[in-house]
Simulated assay, not measured.
Amino acid sequence: MPLHDAFPWVRHLSEAETREFALELRGALSGDVEPEARRAAQSAIVSWRATARIHADPVQESDAARPLADGFGRVEVCG
């Protein structure tokens, strides 16, 4: 089954992003059927689907590409 059939939202990803998603998913699924492997596969799907949603919406994509005005703010050193 082609990746696009299983995950229709990958059409919003670039070729490089689609390849990266496929490799990440394959790595997660090639592990054991342990809960950690299942969580890794779910995490890959959820995070790449979110990326595809941003690419699908021109306003969100523009906002995501814009540099932050204030950086990440002040950093405090603890410890």
Results as ranks from 00 to 15, higher is better:
Leu3Cys: 01
Asp70Phe: 02
His55Gly: 06
Val77Leu: 11
Val77Thr: 06
Thr18Tyr: 02
Glu15Leu: 07
Pro8Met: 02
Gly73Glu: 00
Cys78Val: 14
Asp70Gln: 09
Arg74Pro: 08
Asp57Val: 11
Val33Asn: 14
Glu36Gln: 12
Ala37Thr: 12
Gly79Lys: 04
Trp48Leu: 00
Phe72Ile: 00
Phe21Gln: 03
Gly31Ser: 12
Trp48Glu: 00
Gln42Trp: 09
Pro8Asn: 02
Glu15Lys: 07
Ala56Val: 07
Val77Asp: 05
Ser43His: 13
Leu29Tyr: 01
Leu13Phe: 03
Ala16Trp: 06
Arg11Met: 10
Asp70Arg: 04
Ala40Leu: 04
Val46Asn: 10
Pro67Gly: 02
Arg19Glu: 15
Leu29Arg: 13
Arg53Gln: 12
Gln42His: 12
Pro2Gln: 10
Ile45Asp: 03
Leu25Phe: 01
Gly27Ser: 04
Ser14Val: 06
Arg39Ser: 11
Leu68Trp: 00
Arg74Thr: 15
Pro2Cys: 05
Glu61Pro: 01
Ala16Val: 12
Arg53Ile: 04
Gln60Ser: 09
Leu68Lys: 05
Val77Glu: 11
Asp5Lys: 14
Leu3Gln: 07
Ala50Trp: 05
Val59Met: 10
His4Asp: 13
Ala65Lys: 13
Glu15Met: 05
Trp9Cys: 08
Cys78His: 12
Ala50Arg: 14
Leu29Val: 07
Ala50Tyr: 05
Asp57Thr: 10
Ala69Thr: 13
Pro35Val: 14
Ala52Thr: 07
Arg53Cys: 07
Arg49His: 14
Leu68Thr: 02
Ala37Ile: 02
His12Gln: 11
Gly79Leu: 02
Glu76Asp: 10
Gly31Trp: 09
Ala44Trp: 01
Leu13Trp: 02
Asp70Asn: 13
Arg39Gly: 08
Leu25Tyr: 03
Pro8Ala: 03
Glu24Gln: 07
Pro67Lys: 03
Pro58Asp: 08
Pro67Asp: 06
Arg66Ala: 09
Gly27Cys: 01
Ala41Thr: 08
Ala65Ser: 14
His12Cys: 09
Ile54Leu: 12
